[in-house]
């Protein structure tokens, strides 16, 4: 079994392997079996569509963390030009779990902040599995202030299991680093567009996730705690992760129903990992549209709207009015 495929993707993987095999046969023996291949390709597409039409919340949760899923650096390659990475928090270190930089989006200079996971074991460790330490959030804050200073829109790409739960992270003030970003992003005088591209893991995601727009890719998730963590605390069993995922309502469609989301960006059939170019194009178009819209707003108006938007979060009842 190919580890690059999730269990429910396995039938698709098998079919694709067969197609690849036939192509090799065709080439090696110089015969024409392209009709058969085309037929199989149609079947593969239909199979993918039918599997992806009925995904459970848990399956989407797995897709959001798919090992082949495009990460921030992939989007940078496919969506932006003139990217210059900016390293370090100027105080302690550079955190590779968060990538920051200057880039252009359809000619418009922007500041970009994104979580970065690793593809292979070595890079995974180097990127700390996309779990930032305080210096990562402080680096992000540093470039946010720069975005404000130079009047550049801020684009945040969110993809993390959460802030790193480590000894040194606590020693250097993980809580304060996250809190400070929530505070500063509220009043940052430049448009902020946040997109969940994969895993929106709790406070570690929110720390670069406060802004004027919240966008989610179709197969991304956003939650207060991972399904595994929730299951082990509330059900006292990690086996209930599936149930926890469904109970918390962590998928883009469920969160849109809760009224907390501006837009869901559709992914190519089979998920973003099947076609980086296609998903990047969809996201790019969405980002440009929102950016143009936000740029038209006067900055005071923008900040007031952002503030009122943040204040509207919550579900409660109140007797007798205010």
């Amino acid at each position: 079994m190919d580890l690059k495929f999730l269990d429910f993707e396995q039938p698709i993987a098998d079919l694709e392997a067969k197609i690849e095999e036939l192509r090799n046969v065709e080439f090696d023996n110089n015969i024409n079996i392209s009709d058969a291949i085309r037929q199989l390709e149609d079947r593969s597409r239909a199979l993918t569509e039918s599997i992806f039409a009925n995904l459970s919340d848990w399956q989407i949760s797995q897709l959001s963390r798919h090992p082949g899923r495009p990460y921030t650096l992939d989007y940078i390659q496919h969506m932006f030009t003139d990217f210059h990475e900016l390293h370090g928090d100027r105080t302690y270190a550079d955190d590779p779990a968060i990538v920051c930089g200057l880039a252009r989006l359809e000619g418009q200079p922007i500041i970009l902040i994104g979580h970065q996971k690793g593809r292979d074991t070595r890079e995974k460790i180097y990127r700390n599995f996309g779990m930032p330490r305080p210096e990562g959030y402080r680096k992000a804050l540093r470039v946010m202030k720069m975005a404000e200073r130079f009047k550049l829109p801020l684009i945040c790409l969110i993809d993390t299991p959460g802030a790193y739960p480590g000894i040194e992270a606590e020693e250097r003030g993980q809580s304060e680093a996250i809190a400070r970003n929530l505070f500063e992003m509220t009043r940052l005088k430049t448009p902020i567009i946040c997109t969940i591209i994969g895993e929106g893991g709790s406070g570690g995601a929110l720390a670069i996730g406060v802004g004027d727009r919240l966008i989610m890719l179709e197969y991304s998730t956003y939650s207060v705690i991972s399904p595994e963590g929730c299951a082990s605390i509330l059900w006292k069993s990690a086996d209930k992760s599936q149930l926890a995922a469904e109970s918390m309502g962590i998928t883009s469609d469920r969160i849109r129903e809760q009224g907390l989301l501006d837009e869901v960006v559709r992914e190519p059939v089979g998920g973003g990992h099947r076609d980086f170019q296609a998903i990047a194009l969809n996201l790019r178009e969405t980002l440009i549209r929102h950016m143009e819209d936000l740029k038209r707003q006067a900055i005071d108006e923008l900040l007031e709207r952002r503030y009122q938007r943040i204040m509207s979060f919550g579900a409660f009842s109140e007797e007798g009015g205010k």
């Binding site: 996250i178 809190a179 929530l182 509220t186 709790s202 406070g203 929110l206 996730g209 406060v210 956003y222 939650s223 207060v224 918390m248 309502g249 962590i250 969160i255 809760q258 907390l260 943040i310 979060f313 919550g314 579900a315």
Partner: peptide, 8 residues
């Protein structure tokens, strides 16, 4: 998510 957003 309602509770996460109370942080913000």
């Amino acid at each position: 998510l309602f509770s996460l957003f109370q942080m913000a």
